[in-house]
């Protein structure tokens, strides 16, 4: 039935949220640490690379089982690890910025509720929730960031090449791991209305996320010098803290909490669903929600590991160096399989 098809905008916002979500966390800070004031150019370079990858793969024939069993298991392992890390980061961020008195388990519990209900509500629920809230989240965030722009200092964006051209080029490649979630975009092709809408959604996703990432990162770099920023707060939160408009709501920090938590809930639900979807397709499992809970339990128990915060820093150093290969090379599997089916 046509009911199972996803429209262009739904697909777009789903993946814009999946990609840009980490920019509400610490990604802008991380970008600045690698490229300094040259971040703008680095982002452009990254997107050019990603567009090249995307246009290389976009017209391939893709079916449900394209990733193959081994490929899927590898991807699932990577994503489970990354979602567990993100879940932990969310939890700690919320504890730092708002619910300072609450226990970590309580906050994580709420995230888990959102994650499991999201995954259970299936692709339809996830898409609807995204089309309602994702534009709202990005609109609110961008409006808030722009309204803080009176406090921006654009000289901070120069020298334009920051830490040097070589460092920008290599980091642009390594930071393609930002697009890790975009790999899953290919798995949703069977849901898409037709080839045209799929390709349009891909283009739009990359364009919108380019705009969002660019604005957030550059505004952050322009408003905080390195010694004025505080590591423990997410960059966007720091920008929004600068706003002070007299009238009724003096402070907008809490609006950040609203947008941030909405985005996080959507991300977790969608990721759990997509991981399970990948698994289901690879092993051709029928039945409604057969193995969803085990995946949820794996993610939850991984994120409860106490040493995880050390793992987060370690993974930024070592794992991300390799993760760029996934969005670039993983779709290769698709071509092989896809051609076979053709």
């Amino acid at each position: 039935m046509t009911c199972n098809k996803i429209g262009t905008l739904e697909l777009t916002f789903l993946f814009v949220n999946l990609i840009c979500n980490k920019f509400f966390l610490f990604a802008p800070e991380y970008f600045r640490a690698t490229a300094g004031s040259g971040t703008g150019i680095m982002i452009c370079l990254m997107f050019l690379l990603m567009f090249a990858v995307w246009s290389f793969y976009k017209r391939r024939n893709i079916t449900k089982t394209s990733f193959g069993k081994m490929g899927s298991i590898f991807l699932i392992a990577v994503f489970i690890f990354s979602v567990a890390l993100t879940l932990r980061q969310y939890t700690e961020t919320v504890k730092v910025i708002s619910l300072t008195q609450a226990s970590l388990y309580f906050i994580e519990g709420i995230f888990i509720i959102a994650m499991i209900t999201g995954a259970y509500s299936g692709i339809k629920g996830i898409c609807k929730a995204h089309i309602f809230y994702a534009p709202l989240i990005f609109a609110v965030m961008l409006i808030l960031i722009v309204s803080a722009s009176g406090k921006l200092d654009f000289y901070m964006l120069t020298p334009v090449f920051g830490n040097g051209i070589q460092s920008i080029a290599t980091n642009a490649l390594f930071l393609l791991s930002t697009f890790l979630e975009f790999t899953l975009f290919f798995t949703l092709k069977p849901f898409s209305k037709d080839e045209k809408s799929f390709i349009r959604a891909g283009n739009l996703t990359l364009l919108i996320s380019f705009a969002v990432i660019m604005i957030i990162t550059l505004c952050y770099i322009a408003s905080f010098s390195e010694n004025a920023s505080v590591e423990k707060y997410p960059p966007v939160f720091q920008i929004i803290r600068l706003i002070n408009s007299g009238a009724y709501f003096q402070r907008f920090d809490s609006l950040f909490l609203i947008a941030f938590s909405l985005s996080a809930y959507l991300y977790l639900g969608a990721m759990l669903f997509l991981i399970w979807h990948l698994f289901k397709n690879a092993f051709e499992i029928e039945g409604k929600n057969a193995v969803l809970m085990p995946f949820a339990f794996i993610i939850i128990s991984t994120s409860f590991i106490n040493a995880l915060s050390d793992v987060i820093t370690a993974s930024i150093k070592h794992v991300d160096v390799f993760l760029w290969a996934i969005p670039v090379l993983m779709p290769l599997l698709l071509i092989k399989k896809g051609n076979k089916i053709q």
Binding site: G36, S37, G38, D153, Y155, M156, T158, P159, V160, F161, G162, N163, G164, I165
Partner: peptide, 14 residues
């Protein structure tokens, strides 16, 4: 001094 930043290409030059 920050106004001199656009005159350079990289941070190390600056």
């Amino acid at each position: 001094t920050r106004l001199t930043r656009p005159h350079f290409f990289t941070v190390s030059d600056y």
